[in-house]
Simulated assay, not measured.
Amino acid sequence: MTIAADPLERLRTRTSEKWRAYPDDVLPLFVAEMDYPLAEPIAVALIDAVKRSDTGYVGPDRHVQSAFAAYASSTWGWEVDPQRVTTTTDVSVVIVESLRLVIRPGDRVIITPPVYPPFFGMVPEAGGVVEEVPLRFDDGAGWSLDLAGIERAFASGARAFLLCNPHNPVGLVHTAAELAAVAELAARYDAVVVSDEVHAPLTHSDAAFTPFLSVSDAAREHGIAAHAASKAWNLAGLKCALFVAAGDRMSDLLSGLPYEVEVRTSLFGRIASEAAYTAGGPWLDDVLEAVEANRALLTTLLAQYLPEVRYREPRASYLAWLDFRELGWGDDPSAVALDQARVALLPGPDFGSPGAGFARLNFACSPSVLTEAILRLAAVAP
């Protein structure tokens, strides 16, 4: 492993949300920002842009589309046509603008809680109404999509499904068979699947990510994917994301996007994303090695110091979905964690009603910070 998280004293000089939301006595393990230094190829690309005063508007340049297509091919065996890829500011905009194209005001859109909290707001922002079909959980098999529930929602009139693939916060990497079943349902009911795949490059070594648009003709006919380098390479503040289509029907829909949706892309975001997809692979490999080591460390720490907290190791990203219900810390255990342990977690109820009694922890940090966080939590446990 050749990458280490920056020390706390350096991290606290950052001005992003993770390091400005709370006082310095709080360990911030809430928002999805990593503590690792920026990948060198990305830093060089951005510094070079500054040196040449390349800080203007985005122009007609499709290098990032081609870079993403090459990355998708080499990483997932997914052949993407760069001409079917369009940029914008972030994945949230990809989701909202895609939904606006495929639903009418008042149409229902399926989401699968516990799920990324902004999903609950993106659907109404696009004019839709949230239809919740919670994930299924089995002690043996773990988390899975409720395909029967999704079919019932489509049959009763839901017009779209906002899929989280891989799933935040539980780290579920959906199987190709499940995704093909979703695509078949969408085709049967003439609905559309918008697949948020921002965590895809962070799939762990013991799992395999399947792009939704790769599973079948039905998926290509009825799906739009949202991609970005922002999560895997820690570029959220640079504002560049991708609409991806794989069939004529969705490509034609995306061609109707307002001009401003694309030109609001950040030039720095586009430069950084191209560098990430073309030269950021070795850095990401090191990050994933560090993340997987912390995933295992968290299992060990909880077993030793907080055995009441249940945790199922994720297979993607650096987020842990922790079940505090046996501790009796109420519906929002993150409030106890912050007030008494000075550890900031993301509240479980923000992820929907199945999140009561849970909290999400970001373990893309140093092993020492992760250890200190668990020791602080254990010190206030009953």
Results as ranks from 00 to 15, higher is better:
G223F: 02
T175W: 04
L202Y: 00
L135Q: 00
R152N: 14
M122D: 03
T175A: 09
V115G: 03
F137T: 08
A160T: 12
V173P: 08
A183I: 14
I110V: 07
A181M: 13
G106F: 12
V109W: 09
L213I: 01
H222T: 05
P124K: 06
S205I: 06
S214P: 07
F161L: 15
G142F: 04
D146N: 06
D196H: 15
P117E: 11
L99R: 07
G128F: 00
P118S: 03
D107A: 09
H227S: 01
A155S: 15
A177M: 14
F119S: 00
N168M: 13
V109S: 08
E151T: 05
V198P: 10
Y189M: 10
D196P: 11
R136I: 01
N165A: 12
H174W: 14
P169F: 06
P117V: 07
P124H: 06
S144N: 00
V115P: 03
H199S: 14
A208V: 13
V194P: 12
A141Q: 13
H174Y: 14
E125D: 15
A187T: 12
S195H: 09
P166R: 03
V182N: 07
E131L: 07
F161S: 08
L101I: 10
D107C: 05
T210C: 06
F137A: 07
P134E: 01
A177N: 15
V173W: 02
R108W: 12
G140M: 08
P113H: 06
D138A: 05
G140V: 11
G223S: 05
E132R: 13
R104F: 08
I110G: 00
L213C: 01
E197C: 03
S214L: 02
A181G: 14
E132M: 10
P134S: 03
G223L: 02
G171C: 04
V182L: 14
A181R: 15
G223P: 06
A187F: 08
T112C: 06
F209Y: 10
F154N: 07
G128C: 03
V192F: 15
F209N: 01
E197L: 03
V215A: 00
V130N: 00
L179F: 09
L163D: 06
S214H: 04
P211S: 03
F137N: 05
F154P: 08
L202F: 01
A191L: 08
T175V: 09
V198L: 13
G157C: 10
H167W: 10
A181T: 15
T210F: 02
M122L: 11
G121C: 09
D217C: 04
P124Y: 04
D146A: 02
V215S: 01
L145N: 05
G128K: 01
R108Q: 15
N165I: 13
H167L: 11
V194C: 11
A226T: 07
D107H: 12
P114G: 06
G149M: 04
G149T: 07
V194D: 10
G128P: 05
Y116S: 09
L163M: 11
V102T: 11
V193I: 12
G127T: 04
E178D: 15
L202V: 01
V109N: 10
D196R: 13
C164N: 13
A176L: 07
P105T: 12
T210I: 03
L163R: 08
R188M: 12
P169C: 07
A181I: 12
E151Q: 09
L135V: 01
H204L: 07
A219W: 02
